[in-house]
Structures are given as structure tokens and as C-alpha cells.
């Protein structure tokens, strides 16, 4: 496989800077299926890392394993040097990792304000932070007392991201924030992520949309068949279309077009 050859050349190069999150030989099964076969990944501090790969490669499983929602069968997950692979999900979250799942995990019957209030574990909002988020996502203020289920998909995604940011977090995991969104909305999400990047928020971003990922991410890792096959600075991959084809499969899919048949 093409990806295997790339692996020989560039795999496991640690990105610059020290790692905030480190996965070492993580194996995860879902029921009888082995999804991750020894994932090694380092997420550097203060940078945006994109985790790319085709459907079923193990991107979501990687995030869920970090959150403790699925258990690693083997290997270690180090967050700031501490092994969290056996910790409860709540403890992992309290250690400072925010998670925006693929389905956004919005509480649809709760109002927008209540969704944020659940996430603010201190009970009260930090006014400066809230003001910043309201500026970042103007729709939040407008729909504050509306059930979150009545928001559009894009607004729900904004709410999901805002909910991850309402408390200071040390790392944000986002699973496919652009999935199913109209191009104009993708643009807005992109602005938000770029704003976060400017503020040096550490982020691990799972994406299918290469256009989006290559714009917002500093670092890139590619996962295939449950293993990391490529780790580089994003520029390297962005400037090399043939490498993109090789790693991400068929050009069209990699650039955010329709997905190829399985």
C-alpha cells in the first residue's frame, strides 16, 4: 500500500515542541472488532493538530479512547505526562480535556444557555469568557432561551464548540466540525478555529475535509487501519498534492468532495 511506503520515511517524527497529549501503542477494540492497532501520536502544546484518514480508519475511536469513552485494551494515553488510560471519563474531562463529538452532543431539549451552564462546572460563568464567546458566536445570545434542538446544524456546531470553551481547557478534541455543514457555515467554523489557533489553544481536530484541515492546522497526522502512518508539519502535506493523493486516497475525496464508494 502506498501509505505503508510513506510510513517508512516519515512516521513517528515527533512534532516540535513538547507534547501535551501522547498516545503510546494504543489498541482499542469495539466489541469483537479491533479498531486501533497501536496508535502512536503526540499532540503538541499550543498548536492545532489535524488527524486525517479515510472512513473507518480509527479517527473517532482515537478521540473516544482519549476521553475514556472506549477503553484502550493496551498502550498508554499520557496527558501532560500523566497516564489517563484507566481514568474515568469525568476525571479526564476535569483534567482539562474538552470533547466535541461528531454528533455534537448538544442537549436538544435544554436551552442554549442551559447547555453552556451544564459545561460551566464552577456554576457561574466567567463574564469575560462569556463575553468573548458571545462575540465569537453572535447566534448564542440571540437564541439564549431557545431549546438547542431548534437551532440549525451550523448553530448547533457553534454551540458545541462554545460549550467546550466556556471553561478554560488545556486541550480540545473536535470530531469533524464541518460535517454536513453548508460552505458558508464551514467558513464561520474555520474563522473560529483560526481565532483559537491565534490564542494558542491546543487542539486535536479530526477531519475529512482536507481543505478545512489544511487551512486551520499546524500539524497533521494521518491514520490508516488503526495506525498512524504519517506525521508532519501541515505545510509539507499542503504543498505536495501527490503526497496527499498517496495518503488520503483519491484526490476528490481528500479535498472535501463526495466520498468514494467503500
Amino acid at each position: 500500500m502506498a501509505a505503508r511506503e510513506v510510513l517508512k520515511n516519515s512516521a513517528f517524527q515527533q512534532p516540535p515542541g513538547d507534547a501535551l497529549l501522547q498516545l503510546q501503542g494504543v489498541h482499542t477494540n469495539i466489541g469483537p472488532y479491533r479498531i486501533l492497532h497501536g496508535v502512536d501520536l503526540a499532540v503538541p502544546r499550543g498548536r492545532v493538530t489535524a488527524l486525517l484518514g479515510r472512513n473507518g480508519a480509527g479517527k473517532t475511536t482515537t478521540l473516544r479512547t482519549v476521553m475514556g469513552l472506549w477503553r484502550a485494551r493496551a498502550g498508554r494515553v499520557l496527558f501532560d505526562g500523566r497516564d489517563i488510560s484507566r481514568a474515568a471519563t469525568a476525571a479526564i474531562a476535569r483534567a482539562g480535556i474538552a470533547y466535541v463529538p461528531e454528533n455534537m452532543g448538544i442537549f436538544k431539549l435544554l436551552t442554549v444557555g442551559e447547555n453552556l451552564r451544564v459545561a460551566a462546572r464552577e456554576g457561574a460563568f466567567d463574564p469575560a469568557r462569556l463575553a468573548w464567546l458571545r462575540e465569537l458566536f453572535p447566534a448564542l445570545g440571540r437564541f439564549w432561551d431557545k431549546p438547542a434542538g431548534t437551532l440549525s446544524g451550523g448553530q448547533q456546531q457553534m454551540l458545541a464548540i462554545a460549550r467546550a470553551l466556556i471553561e478554560p481547557r488545556r486541550l480540545i478534541l473536535i470530531d469533524e466540525p464541518t460535517k454536513g455543514l453548508a460552505p458558508a457555515i464551514v467558513e464561520q467554523v474555520m474563522e473560529v478555529v483560526l481565532e483559537l489557533r491565534k490564542r494558542e489553544v491546543s487542539m486535536l481536530l479530526v477531519e475529512q475535509n482536507f481543505e478545512f484541515a489544511s487551512t486551520v492546522a499546524d500539524e497533521v497526522a494521518v491514520i490508516d487501519n488503526g495506525r498512524i502512518v504519517f506525521v508532519e508539519r501541515m505545510e509539507t502535506l499542503r504543498d505536495d498534492p501527490s503526497l496527499q493523493d498517496q495518503l488520503l486516497g483519491l484526490g476528490v475525496a481528500a479535498r472535501g468532495g463526495p466520498e468514494p464508494p467503500a
Binding site: 476521553m67 469513552l69 474515568a88 471519563t89 469525568a90 474531562a93 476535569r94 470533547y99 463529538p101 452532543g105 442537549f107 436538544k108 431539549l109 435544554l110 451544564v118 459545561a119 462546572r121 460549550r163
Partner: peptide, 12 residues
Amino acid sequence: EDREMVQALGYR
């Protein structure tokens, strides 16, 4: 509504 998300927000 979503107990997994409540856990992921830091509640036991």
C-alpha cells in the same frame, strides 16, 4: 438526554 456527554463534561 445524553449521559455520555454529561460525563465528557466532567460529571460522574
